[in-house]
Design a protein around this nucleic acid. Structure first.
Lengths: 252, 252
DNA sequence: CTTGAACCTAACGTAACGTGAGGTTGTAGC
DNA sequence: GCTACAACCTCACGTTACGTTAGGTTCAAG
């Protein structure tokens, strides 16, 4: 009952002051991050000025994105290099942002490809995603010169044409898949048309450059042994197209 | 025992193919996202081609950062607008990135301020963070003209001087805090020196512009009622400094 | 003395699995 | 047929930072 400030705060008061929830303060107490120095006889928490001070520190560190565990380590270590921690934290954060940025790019690409069509099915979306995943993985196998050439051709074709082609791929893949599942013979006329279109699109991409085409085939072989994305269906489609092309050479 | 592909995969095989863990596949089964169509008599999971196909779709969507719940909704809805989902997702992601970027900026600022000193304590780190938090909150209250003026002055002072001042703030605050806790009288000579330095730094910031100084004082009053960051200690320091300044006017 | 606000503890729920524990099945070699 | 050992099975707890009841006690005002 001092005229001075009440010397110790109850949870609700502290919560209101800091904008944290009562539950949060309970939790901090629970994990031993911030345990009030005193209690009333009834067991009510009483936060002293020192406690409030510690909470202030906690909030500052939380503001930097530190986890409660890290905060405890920081505050409980008497000798401590803030710079090291910050820089470490910063590195992790940058890594995260890079990942998220990449994800964002992908989504934007997907959105762009989809927006050229009216409406689409979930399967079309998945196919589009697969094309992108594959191109990303392919990219790793090109030599810098090959990459340059591909990009050069990309510039030559113009943005619009690229978007057209990119929108056509998933569609084509879906049709081929349908024929495969239906068990249509590769020499069937419908399949022949699809195969022809397929090869045209591939040529437009590789520019007919045999080195790059070889690279692509190489990748397919490589990828077989690499764990991860299911290249199986894609590979099957490739084989199906190959058979169709072979059948077209000697039409009966 | 077909010569055709084994028709159905066991968990381990599927796991190896996709790079997922067995536990993950168990989990997908558990939540009903991907339940194998068949089981052996012994209860071993058998994934058919259709199941593998669904998993492929799942992985594609996961690659876009969708949650398992969202994926289920997408795959289980027969009619579905991929574009809407993608754009929604994209918006959320952009928001996240913005936040993280902001956090990153803060950390960089902190790192820059700290790097001008050799080593520091945790308390110094916290003080630095507080200064930044406060400036961020102050910023909201300035009119565009005031902001322009402050930035103008910032450019005038030069980067180096700014960093000097910014590094000095936390230090000064820590000293003032120490004197307060020690209960030193505001008229004490040490406090007087601190207060003088304090006012100098403030002047350098506001440029002596009374409108801006008034804004700052206004903010302090405003902030009292706004929930959130603990302005208490800062306010106390302000009062302490005020008393010190008053004491200096009529030195006994 | 009552009432309502503020407090207490305890316990479950969140997302997407990792990591055992403890038991059954499949298969290879002897 | 026996014995390993790999692969499979089903629980079930741990992870982060709290939100959200539920059921009971204490405080402050009228």
């Amino acid at each position: 009952m001092e005229t001075r400030q009440s010397a110790a705060l109850k949870v609700g008061e502290l919560a209101k002051q800091t904008g944290l929830s009562v539950r949060t303060l309970h939790y901090y107490d629970e994990i031993g991050l911030l345990s009030p120095s005193r209690r009333t006889e009834a067991g009510h928490r009483l936060y002293t000025a020192g406690d409030v001070d510690r909470l202030r520190q906690i909030n500052s560190l939380r503001y930097l994105g530190a986890s409660l565990e890290e905060i405890r380590e920081i505050l409980d270590a008497p000798d401590f290099s803030p710079r090291r921690v910050i820089e470490q934290h910063l590195a992790r954060l940058r890594e995260q942002i890079k990942l998220q940025q990449k994800l964002c790019d992908r989504l934007e690409e997907i959105a762009a490809r989809l927006s050229s069509k009216e409406e689409g099915s979930a399967e079309e979306l998945v196919q589009t995603v697969e094309v992108i995943r594959m191109s990303e993985r392919l990219w790793r196998y090109y030599t810098p010169e090959q990459r340059e050439e591909i990009e050069e051709r990309g510039r030559g074709l113009g943005e619009e044409r690229i978007r057209q082609v990119e929108a056509e791929w998933p569609e084509l893949m879906e049709q081929v898949r349908a024929e495969m599942e239906a068990g249509t013979d590769p020499s069937d006329e419908r399949v022949q048309r699809l195969a022809k279109r397929w090869m045209e699109l591939v040529r437009e991409f590789t520019g007919g450059n045999p080195e790059i085409e070889s690279s692509v085939r190489n990748v397919w072989r490589q990828e077989e042994t690499i764990h991860g994305v299911d290249t199986g269906p894609m590979r099957e489609m490739g084989e199906y197209i190959s058979r169709a092309m072979a059948a077209s050479k000697k039409p009966k």
